[in-house]
């Protein structure tokens, strides 16, 4: 049986890569990619070749998506269209509409469809929040001590709520929710990768959060596998191991600037107001308390382990940006060379 797969959020990096690996798979008949904006052009903006993916420009917030699903006899839906930061034009309200209303429309269309057999939804480990009262490692069943109340994390929790509702109503459809740790890799453009691209990193004084990354290649592979086989349930996706923020800073050879948390919040708000970067309250909490998830359930279900550990993913990111530790380590090397000879 050949599959017809719908991929949403295909104009952004991971979505495009997922569409392109699915399009390269001979078991898949058609891949239809949808997004609100056309994919970036290959030559100018460094887009990903989409292969034989057919692009349809649909605003997910409108019921048009139902027509796409009905017209193409879609049997697998890969929902990647969650944006983690407000777009430059539009702000938070637009982002929320895009994430939550978009998902509701899509799930509504899937519920009506007689052909959809499998739904894969991208979510985030941010749904666990980040607080000093949480266990050190979250499993999928963990109840967050303080559920997220803002931004992306709140959108993702709401989206997961609608997905659970859909799964209850359509028990014949296999529903997979993937909670990804922060994406890391050469092509990833996220608040976190932009943060690590600054020369001087503001950190919260007295806190050294544990971070976990998932390499983009592994993320694509997990999405490909869950789009091809039934793995109903919720899964954490992250590279093995953890990195402390201080370790990341040292490995990148950057300098950190510890700022007391109230000032950090203020600076974050100012920077957001000036449109320089987005720094939400979630990110401040992450910068204080960090977040680590357990991936045993995913490894067991897929019989596969992410190839990149957290530190390997970060290394690959640094390598692609030409940041490889550099000066401080080189100075110690020079010193040790001088004194030991």
């Amino acid at each position: 049986m050949t599959h017809t797969v719908l991929v949403t959020g295909v104009s952004r990096h991971i979505g495009a890569r997922v569409a392109s690996v699915l399009a390269a798979d001979p078991d898949i008949g058609r891949v239809i990619g949808v997004d609100t904006v056309p994919p970036p052009s290959l030559s100018r903006d460094g887009g990903v070749p989409l292969g034989r993916t057919e692009f349809v420009r649909v605003d997910l917030r409108s019921p048009d998506i139902a027509q796409v699903i009905a017209a193409a006899d879609i049997d697998t839906v890969v929902h990647m269209s969650l944006v983690s930061a407000p777009p430059r034009s539009g702000g938070r309200a637009l982002m929320k509409e895009h994430n939550v209303i978009g998902t509701m429309q899509l799930l509504g269309a899937c519920q009506r469809s007689a052909t959809v057999r499998r739904v894969v939804v991208r979510s985030t480990t941010a749904v666990y929040g980040s607080s000093p009262r949480d266990p050190a490692v979250f499993t999928e069943d963990a109840e967050p001590g303080e559920p997220p109340t803002h931004g992306y994390a709140k959108d993702a929790s709401e989206v997961e709520g609608y997905v659970r509702g859909f799964a209850r109503r359509r028990r014949d459809v296999s529903v997979t929710t993937l909670r990804f740790a922060n994406f890391m890799g050469p092509g990833v453009d996220s608040p976190l990768t932009r943060y690590f691209s600054q020369p001087l990193l503001p950190t919260v004084f007295g806190f050294d959060p544990r971070l976990q990354f998932v390499h983009e290649d592994d993320a694509v592979e997990v999405l490909r596998r869950t789009a091809m086989e039934d793995h109903p349930g919720t899964f954490n996706v992250a590279g093995d191991g953890v990195l402390l923020l201080s370790q990341c800073v040292r490995r990148a050879g950057l300098l950190s600037l510890p700022i007391p948390s109230p000032a950090f919040r203020l600076i974050g708000d100012l920077a957001r107001g000036a449109g320089m970067m987005d720094f939400s309250p979630e990110q401040l909490r992450l910068m204080c308390h960090g977040r680590v998830v357990d991936t045993a359930r995913l490894v067991q279900a897929l019989g596969w382990k992410p190839k990149f550990s957290t530190s390997a993913a970060f290394e690959d990111f640094l390598h692609s940006r030409g940041m490889d530790g550099g000066l401080p380590a080189a100075m110690v090397d020079a010193l040790s060379h001088m004194v030991t000879r």
Partner: peptide, 10 residues
């Protein structure tokens, strides 16, 4: 250089 390991509990 940050080349040391911490476990999942930090």
């Amino acid at each position: 250089a940050g080349e040391y390991e911490v476990d999942e509990f930090g």
